[in-house]
């Protein structure tokens, strides 16, 4: 049976001869092989598809999903492992978004900690007044998002205790931190109320040295290193997402461990 699509008069086979070199060039296998190579190349050659706006939006949406997943997974009663005093690294390892030589020390005498947002008492705090709050000590592992880690001994007031002292609304979603070096960070309320989340003022039995956040820094055992702001100057209790220096650049915000 002749196909209905076949022309009534067949074309002159001569036209094929006229285009023989072109026909030879179109070798199906070559097209297939080329296509496969191109596909593999786009996947493998140090490409940056994330610079495409819609790809980036999808990746960031997945990161928000990971925030929610980690919030659901977080157990406020689950403690991170603690270690022996002889395992403590002295001095601690420096980390910031700049080099240690560029640290600008904070003057403890003039330093004030501002508190704001959903809190009852907005009186600023001094070093002396902070020291009067009940103190807690913990030896925990600091884990950087890059992959390195060290064991450190931190002491100070539990953030949960401090929030109670300033009459914070613990139904609020976020605690935002502002720092003397223009760093900023924020954590979720359940992590803020975790027993191993401290506003630290001491390291290995001594006042925290300048490069490590004097006079006040956050130390939480359940989050990556960059979630622990140093040289804190303001704390805000809020329902409005405050972001953070690194999360604003694409690092996962929750970054729980």
């Amino acid at each position: 049976m002749i196909s209905r699509n076949r022309p009534a008069t067949p074309p002159d086979p001569g036209i094929l001869d006229n285009h023989r070199p072109l026909v030879d060039a179109v070798e199906r296998r070559m097209v297939l092989r080329g296509g496969l190579s191109l596909g593999l190349l786009t996947l493998l050659t140090g490409c940056e598809p994330e610079s495409n706006a819609s790809v980036r939006a999808a990746l960031l949406a997945m990161s928000r999903f990971n925030d929610r997943f980690q919030e659901a997974l977080f157990d406020v009663n689950k403690l991170a492992p603690t270690y022996r005093p002889d395992q403590v690294l002295k001095p601690p390892r420096f980390n910031a978004y700049y080099d240690i030589t560029q640290v600008q020390p904070v003057d403890g005498a003039t330093w004030r900690l501002e508190v704001g947002g959903k809190v009852a008492d907005k009186t600023p705090w001094t070093v002396e007044r902070m020291a009067k709050l009940p103190q807690t000590d913990m030896i925990i592992r600091h884990v950087c998002v890059e992959g390195w880690d060290y064991i450190g001994e931190w002491a100070g007031v539990r953030l949960g205790t401090f929030l109670k002292a300033i009459g914070a609304d613990t139904r609020a979603r976020y605690i935002g931190f502002k720092c003397a070096d223009n760093y900023h960070e924020s954590i979720d309320m359940p992590t803020a109320l975790h027993p191993q989340t401290l506003l630290a003022t001491r390291y290995a039995g001594e006042t925290i040295a300048d490069p490590y956040g004097f006079p006040l820094r956050l130390r939480t055992s359940t989050k990556l290193g960059f979630k622990n702001p140093k040289w804190i100057t303001a704390i805000e209790v809020t329902d409005v997402y405050p972001g953070g220096y690194f999360p604003d650049q694409g690092f996962n915000w929750f970054s729980g461990m």
Binding site: L43, M62, S63, V145, Q249, G250
Partner: peptide, 29 residues
Amino acid sequence: DDVIFSWLRFPDWLKLGHWAQDSLLWHFA
């Protein structure tokens, strides 16, 4: 971003993600 073996660093053209945070976004998605 923090190598395990000092002698091994993957060439830029083999990795996915320009900065570490981009690689992390890809990995965790």
